[in-house]
Design a protein around this nucleic acid. Structure first.
Lengths: 157, 157
DNA sequence: TCAAATAGGACTAAAATAGTACTGTATCAA
DNA sequence: TTGATACAGTACTATTTTAGTCCTATTTGA
């Protein structure tokens, strides 16, 4: 596992829609439609992303959102940071003061290294890459699953 | 965030206790005490770790657990894999069939890359290192990002 | 001034996780 | 052979986290 939240996941989809045409301002309803995600949820995501500097918002009639930076300047690490806060695999990393063993824990320093390594890995992948069409990744193995997918989704929703 | 589960976290503590004296068999009660974690919880963790091949168990009176491999041969990735299953930041990675967009999703292939990068980073850190007393490892290359991160954290909270 | 849109916060529902307990099985030693 | 010790497995409950929704306020353009 080691999963990021669904909202963070969705946000990569929404952002990649925006990245396809970075100059254009789009409102929440459009983005909800294009990303096939419920409007209230998309709306929530957009607010969070705007608040944390990944999107610029334009209020009022004919307003909307657009990317605050070029897609190549936004990394996956940035997106996760914006949606979930600092990357930290353990609780002691992002919430100091919870763990009683904190002051004597010899592992904490190692976790910092690990977190940094993960962050670095995530920093290397940009939104520009995420939004780019697949280059010869073989989709063959997934195609056959499609009908099962729809069924699974129906069960889930 | 991007957090691993508490159980996975605890398990690193328990394993590092075992790693301090890899030959010695210890029972659940001992390990609970030494790791300052409730016995039922430690017990659950130990079972999971044994089931997934990180620990060898010895049943019966004077039984207990010991590491299945040398501490240097057990990586953080192994631990997370044992406790949480395959590393995958998105749901589609570890549960194919849920997402309707799966077959047409151009991002999936990128997520595979990202997961691999994270797994690689976690594979480089071993239990031997985790269990070792602190030595000042060089955080130099990451330092420059640190202040930016803190700022971002402040904004998020 | 009206309509369209974001901002912010509060609230509810659902899902995942943590934690506990109980029953079964293996092993050792008296 | 029997009792004590300790792991194995599973089911259950409670808690916490996350997701999702809704409502009201504010901003802005026509």
């Amino acid at each position: 596992m080691l999963r990021m939240s669904k909202l963070a996941d969705y946000s990569t989809v929404v952002l990649s829609v925006l990245a396809r045409d970075p100059q254009r301002t789009r409102n929440a309803a459009e983005l909800a439609q294009e990303s096939a995600t419920p409007l209230p949820t998309v709306s929530k995501i957009l607010k969070t992303l705007a608040k944390n500097g990944l999107l610029t918002s334009v209020r009022g009639a004919s307003g909307g959102y657009l990317l605050a930076r070029a897609p190549a300047q936004i990394s996956v690490a940035d997106i996760i940071l914006a949606m979930e806060g600092p990357i930290g695999l353990t609780e002691c990393g992002s919430h100091p003061g919870i763990c009683v063993q904190e002051s004597t824990c010899s592992m904490r320093h190692h976790w910092n290294r690990i977190n940094d390594a993960v962050r670095e890995a995530l920093d290397k992948v940009t939104l520009a890459e995420l939004a780019a069409p697949n280059q010869k990744a073989s989709p063959i193995q997934w195609v056959k699953k499609e009908s099962a997918d729809k069924k699974a989704l129906a069960a889930v929703r």
